[in-house]
Design a protein around this nucleic acid. Structure first.
Length: 111
DNA sequence: GAGGTGACGACCC
DNA sequence: TGGGTCGCCACCT
């Protein structure tokens, strides 16, 4: 039986499970899906996530440094405001205490 | 059908 | 330490 779920679908599924107030990285999701080097595709999936209904918490996904590299794709500082609303502190487009709020799917979802 | 691109990350000088 | 390169997967032209 063919697995209809693409890498894309799996990415969305993981992002939907990110708890409120938590964040993760593109690479962590890619790694969880078994393709640690596919982080670029995860980023592309986030780009496509804007047309999903309902929208997924793409703002909770940042790069491995905790930097909001994708905020321009949200339009303005919407991404930053969303994160701040969840209790995060953003300075210079970077999440402070990133490791404290880090949510690792490879651990939390434990394949 | 083929080549270029991208919200990344890891490796190699 | 830091700049350059490759890999991966899906989309666009």
């Amino acid at each position: 039986m063919e697995n209809k779920y693409t890498f894309f679908e799996n990415v969305f599924d993981v992002v939907r499970q990110i708890p409120y107030g938590k964040v993760t990285s593109y690479g962590a999701i890619a790694k969880y899906l078994g393709s640690a080097k596919s982080s670029r595709t995860v980023g592309y999936a986030m780009n496509a996530s804007h047309q999903l209904i309902p929208k997924i918490a793409a703002h909770r996904v940042v790069n491995r440094n905790g930097m909001l590299t994708g905020k321009h794709h949200f339009g303005g500082n919407e991404m930053q405001q969303s994160l701040e609303a969840e209790g995060h502190i953003i300075i210079d487009d970077k999440i402070q205490n990133f490791s404290t709020h880090y949510w690792d799917p490879t651990i939390e979802l434990a394949i």
